[in-house]
Design a binder for these strands. Structure first.
Lengths: 232, 232
DNA sequence: ATTAAAATGTGAACTACTTCACATCTTTAA
DNA sequence: TTAAAGATGTGAAGTAGTTCACATTTTAAT
């Protein structure tokens, strides 16, 4: 009984791949790009995982998303004349990415309306995802941030099991806290409270959600389509 | 010495206007649309001001942006098959909006690559704006949220004066707080602290910023282009 | 000009979250 | 297999922000 729940984007990946002139092997722990660096390229993940984050002036990290296969990153500087990365992209699982020059994609989008349409759709979905995520963070306090993050992770990495949904991505309390803008200790305390109440359980850094409804109710989740509710 | 600092978007407004089949007169205090309603149209503001917000389950409001002339709102549901508004749009200054059917704009974008390109650029800018705003809210606490909001307002509604920048938009403490996810009282206390230190002053609900650098330094502002740093 | 309504200002108690400090448990590398 | 490193768990103190309650000031309506 192992049924992945990962949503798929409908962007024409193959078309984008044709625009790529090279691929990079990504190595765990290395940065694909970092905030402030000159941004002239966009990346299509072929395999592996990349975590996108923002680091503030006193060193606190806010993790924004994890990109997996067929995701795009570095897109934030498209159509811009001040090409500096606003975020950092850390490789958390080795793999390969296809590199696409910004000018190339900008030109192609102008000429290829099907691609333009697909790309726009992707941006639109991506935007909604980000916006609803932040809303949860700001509007529902730290608990809301954690619950929202867990819910999103069940959509991105959830595997249905008899006793609930296993989030198939090992995460430390610190890493999870980075997604919520929360300290390691607070994250730990909140997780333990959820454990005590039987809402979740954790084994080897992987969370199993036993009562998803509880989490959703707590943050007033409107059960919007899965595609807008993930951490990719 | 009155020099407006409002940035302009380069979207081909005229082209979008041609797609509109009707206009609506907006009345202060009324909603253009509300969360949950069926979303089949997109709005181009011809005149007046519309405030976009999200209301959470216990009635707290998070204000996201204020749309003025030539802004687009209701765009969040484009390219979607579950067309429900995620946000509410309140008229805060009467005026007129042009209504464009979603299908019409989707078809047109597919056929008109120049429009597609311009629209994408708009979306891209808009996305960056939203993302950097939320980052400030989450990463720098409530003070960061307030400072960020004030900085953005100087970019959207600022008028240069001899003693600083006047934000030409009257706002109550409550309204300002709604932009920051902060209570009225906290907003008031933070504003008074800024007043005491001479950073700002307030007359008839309008803030004048005397020391913008102070605010920027406090939140580690990277002085990104004005176009990504506004509340529109 | 007068009054009502709305907005501001502020103390005090309370709640949420962070930080520090340190103990314990788990994983990894030699 | 056993150190060492890394991750978790938790009390206690401190900080930030909210809420409540009410006084004062400002604005709008007649």
């Amino acid at each position: 009984m192992t049924q992945p729940m990962k949503p798929t984007h409908s962007i024409e990946i193959k078309e984008l791949l044709q625009l790529s002139n090279r691929t990079i092997k990504t190595v765990k722990g290395q940065y694909l790009f970092q905030e402030g660096e000159k941004a002239e390229e966009l990346y299509l993940i072929v395999s592996g995982k990349i975590q996108i984050s923002k680091i503030n002036k006193d060193g606190r990290e806010l993790a924004l998303r994890i990109c997996g296969e067929n995701d795009i990153c570095g897109e934030l500087t498209l159509f811009t004349h001040s090409p500096k990365f606003l975020l950092s992209a850390l490789v958390i699982e080795e793999g390969e990415v296809a590199v696409i020059k910004k000018e190339v994609i900008e030109t192609e989008i102008f000429q290829n309306s099907a691609l333009a349409f697909e790309f726009m759709k992707w941006m639109s979905d991506h935007f909604r995802k980000t916006q609803t995520k932040f809303r949860d963070l700001v509007l529902n306090g730290k608990k809301g941030a954690l619950y929202s993050t867990i819910i999103r992770m069940t959509n991105s990495y959830g595997i249905k099991k008899t006793d609930g949904i296993l989030i198939d991505l090992p995460l430390t309390n610190q890493e999870l806290g980075n997604f919520c803008g929360t300290s390691r200790e607070s994250t730990n305390r909140m997780l333990n409270e959820l454990k005590r109440e039987g809402i979740i359980s954790i084994k080897k850094g992987k969370i199993t959600v036993h009562n998803l409804k509880y989490l959703k109710d707590e943050i007033g989740c409107e059960n919007c389509p899965v595609i807008y509710c993930s951490i990719e």
